[in-house]
Amino acid sequence: MSVGIVGYGSYVPRRRIKLPDIARVWGADAESYERGLELHEKSVPARDEDTITMAVTAARRALKRAGIDPLTIGAVYVGSESHPYAVKPSGTVLAEALGATPAVHCADLEFACKAGSEGMFIAASLVKAGEVQHALAVGADTSQGAPGDALEYSAAAGAAAFIFGADKLVATLDAQCSFMTDTPDFWRREYMHYPRHAGRFTGEPAYFKHTLGAAKMLMEKSGTKPADFAFAVFHQPNGKFPMRAGKMLGFTTEQMQQGWLSPWLGNTYSGASPIGLTAILDIAKPGDRILMVSYGSGSGSDGFVWTVTPRIDEVRALAPHTRVLLDTNKIYVDYGTYAKLRGKIRMGE
């Protein structure tokens, strides 16, 4: 039985802040960030946008493309490191808003930036096992970096949603795998507002080891090589890492360009490679093969091989395209407004 994606959707907040506006406040050299990390601006959530609201809108767009009855969704997974409640799953609100309750299994997932792909892995597996007719997986985050920290230049907001099924597929799932070890490169302890990271240790032994490890494992498992793919998308904590990882594996800029959103979106954490995948599905042709590898600190990567089906041409216009959300209707904010929106200003009682 073939399983795969029946519908997909994304969400990107309209607000943006430009990197030089952050660098100016902290006396940092904006050019070194723009050139060194290939980051130019990032999305900023408004006070009324959070992981749940973004998940709902992305999932509604996925439902439109799927054209299914929400009551056939038997599982809802929201992957995020910025769930609005510490205790009470984001998926409860999401499933209720979609009209998918009450016969639905629900869990919130957390694994730094790969929580979204974790949900995709589980959702696809449940459909494959015949446990549910359809399963929804969402990757969404409104992540924060500590003021002045390197992470503040990239931590952004966005969401992607995928409905999995065995019928009316827009992309088949041909192979999936995970590559995971205990690697303490980035973490946030209980009750802490901002995460901590291990500087350069987040690079070679963390991001690259797991991303390349999962990609190689996946290509071996599926009997594929880079030239077999029309597109590839990797986790994108900045603009530089995914392009470098892809080149190390033998992928070309052309294969990676469409899903490479971080220079203008920032790092959407659990949403990063999933939103990249939505941008690819927006333009992919039937028969195109797509390689996707996520990365979550801690650390692990999930890898997926997708093949696009002819149904993509019928559904892609049913909801906004990701690059349209990214490139239009932008509202630029200054650092003061950004600090206010992100709750970084200490208020009076």
Partner: peptide
């Protein structure tokens, strides 16, 4: 022209 979107109230 507007569209209703899910938000935190």
């Amino acid at each position: 022209p507007v569209s209703l979107e899910f938000r935190r109230i």
